[in-house]
């Protein structure tokens, strides 16, 4: 299954986001080996250079570590992963709040909606 992209945004950023999501979801758990650039590029049906750039970004962010001889791994440092999860959650929440504000909802109303929905959720 080729991955789906938004052609209007830089591809390497979108690739980095997808792999980050895999890490946060535990598809690639802490310390796990990440497939090779070539295999990942093939799976996503993108240019290996672009995939390389995406992984370089994740390395910069501290989520991925390169071991010279044996390839790339997800960081063992759970704090780094928690940090990334937190950052992503805040971004998503911010998006949501902005949308609610566009609907002219007040702080308390937004809070009430969320609390109500969370209260109704079974899990």
């Amino acid at each position: 299954m080729p991955w789906v992209f938004d052609p209007h945004r830089p591809l390497y950023l979108q690739l980095a986001e997808k792999i980050e999501a895999f890490i946060l979801a535990g598809t690639y758990p802490a310390g796990a080996k990440i497939p090779s650039v070539r295999d990942l590029a093939k799976e996503a049906a993108v240019n290996p250079n672009t995939m390389q750039r995406a992984l370089a970004k994740l390395e910069e962010d501290g989520l991925v570590i390169t071991q010279r001889t044996s390839g790339r791994f997800v960081t063992e440092d759970k704090k780094e992963i928690a940090k990334a999860r937190n950052r992503l959650a805040q971004e998503e929440a911010m998006q949501f709040i902005m949308k609610m504000q566009k609907l002219e909802l007040k702080k308390e109303e937004i809070q009430a909606i969320i609390n109500k929905m969370l209260g109704e959720m079974k899990v």
Binding site: P7, H8, R9, L11
Partner: peptide, 15 residues
């Protein structure tokens, strides 16, 4: 570079 077009113009190459 392709990603530069997307970054600077916010457009796909096709657009």
């Amino acid at each position: 570079p392709v990603d530069e077009i997307r970054e600077k113009e916010g457009k796909s190459v096709d657009t």
